[in-house]
Design a protein around this nucleic acid. Structure first.
Lengths: 303, 303
DNA sequence: CCCGCTGTTTCAATAAGCGGAACCATGTTC
DNA sequence: GAACATGGTTCCGCTTATTGAAACAGCGGG
């Protein structure tokens, strides 16, 4: 009954497709350079040997992703990104040729195209952690009667890749695919706490953006909290990333002990406040099973 | 309980929010093949004043979407697209900076990045037809006990944007987001049949690719079938796009009488063969309701 | 250990994208 | 309804970013 779950086109005989056994996808990055997210103005200081035109084109796509209005005009984009109208127009035309963007001939504005759906679906389909975690998320959501989410890391950021919401009126729902910093919210902190020490240092040496009024941006305070998280194995947050929301989160480790994903239970802050311990218990059982599936044998890693 | 359905991050109190006004998206495309860099100057005649670098970058993304293996290497991409390794590498670096692609440091290969998930989710979220049709798809799938799908048009192609699968062992599942030609399969033919005559002519004057052994590529035969489809209001296919699959499909019209989407019922070919008339009945009720919601008043359009 | 394969970097040539301004097409105002 | 305003599209010289070949670096297999 799921809507967007199925991804492989085929006449399926068994409920799941046995398929080729893909190895676990581990992602690692070493980008020390922190980008200022969605800021307008000049981005002259990239300093890389990459293709600036392509990056600017990508920025246009990302602008659509972060914009509140689904349709954007040429000048709108140009001013937002500090580009000239002609450059924007040329890039938009290219994307349009590839069906990555669409043009509404009436309003003369552009919007995201269906090909992006294909790319996103493809990405999800090859995320084996997601497949593996799906039943766990369902069970976790049912037991806690709250939303269960799954996140993966992408460089200095974290991205929700799945969620299962409970069957009740007031609930929390996260936006899949959008990137969040590694220091705000339970899921992020759960990731950060279990990274290798040098990566933690690298991240903490950057700017810690104040996402909400409760976001912890003091490095020393955050470091103390990371120690706590490592000791007890899970992180919590009340409104640190999303005002009014609360959550508990714990990482999933692969065989090498690297955190490859984070599972969280989240809901409205007032409700979550009284459920934290209960949720954390269920959560750890869930992540423990997943880590075991990935070949992780819990060792003395508490430090 | 849906996994990827929710898209807006918020603490939701009401189950769903009624969307804003609908905008019919019509677009026209021209697929030129620009490969030879010799006469790469300004070709005013072909109407190609777009950014070739960006298009080539987009081609790389699309290659990932259509490739069977989730990871691609630099030379692999370069040879597949006829580009130089350095160009590919630079573009890959740009995409990596934007988290549109990821690099597996072990295998030194690239794969799709999580930002694409965000873009795809965003696209789905702003497709109001999808929201509107979702309950209809669910009902249709339940009544027919087969898979119900929703497609939209994108240039000369058609894209699945949603599906609801029945609760049984043997079923059909389509791949969301991937583009299909307008002449193969019931959903495609249902679109094609109700386009304006000049657009039909334009499409039929192009090459009709033989997708499966049963794909109709003879223009005259196809034209006859389009007449039939227009007369009875729905299209059928047995293995024309996907071997072993069968389906019936009918369009959804907006207030102007333009087909904005297509709903289909599909399943394994043997089973569908005996269910076609029954499914078509349910299907037409469903699409009729949707068209009515869009302000379409059935007129004497049979011809 | 060396060879072959693949990803990364370098560098000069130049093709390609850039921006400003002119050009249209809408729809808004008076 | 004409003049105006707004925003998309096109044109064109300038210059910069991109390109391709070749050199370099890592890695795995023979």
């Amino acid at each position: 009954m799921t809507a967007v779950g199925a991804l492989l086109e085929s006449v399926v005989v068994a409920p799941a497709r046995p398929g080729a056994a893909t190895t676990g996808s581990n992602l690692r990055e070493r980008h020390g350079k922190a980008r200022i997210p969605n800021m307008a103005g000049q981005n002259a200081e990239t300093g890389n040997n990459s293709a600036s035109t392509v990056e600017r084109a990508a920025d246009i796509l990302l602008l659509f992703a972060s914009s509140s209005s689904p349709q954007l005009g040429v000048t709108e984009i140009a001013t937002a990104l500090g580009m000239s109208k002609s450059a924007v127009h040329r890039i938009l035309l290219s994307f349009r040729n590839k069906n990555l963007l669409e043009l509404d001939p009436d309003s003369r504005k552009y919007s995201l195209g269906p090909t992006l759906l294909g790319l996103g679906a493809k990405y999800l389909g090859q995320l084996d952690i997601r497949r593996m975690a799906a039943p766990e998320l369902t069970a976790l959501s049912r037991m806690t009667n709250e939303t269960a989410t799954l996140s993966v890391r992408s460089g200095d950021q974290r991205v929700y890749v799945d969620q299962v919401t409970p069957d009740r009126e007031v609930l929390m729902s996260v936006q899949l695919g959008m990137a969040h910093p590694l220091h705000a919210g339970a899921s992020s902190k759960a990731f950060l706490a279990f990274l290798p020490p040098d990566e933690i240092d690298g991240y903490l040496s950057g700017t810690l953006h104040q996402v909400t009024s409760r976001t912890v941006t003091d490095v020393r305070k955050l470091r103390r909290e990371l120690v706590t998280i490592r000791q007890r194995g899970w992180a919590q947050s009340l409104g640190e990333r999303q005002a009014g929301a609360g959550s508990v989160a714990a990482p999933v480790f692969d065989a090498r002990g690297v955190p490859v994903a984070v599972v969280s239970v989240c809901g409205p802050a007032e409700r979550m406040a009284g459920e934290i311990d209960d949720c954390a218990g269920h959560l750890l059982v869930c992540t423990g099973r997943l880590s075991a599936q990935l070949g992780y044998h819990a060792a003395g890693n508490v430090g």
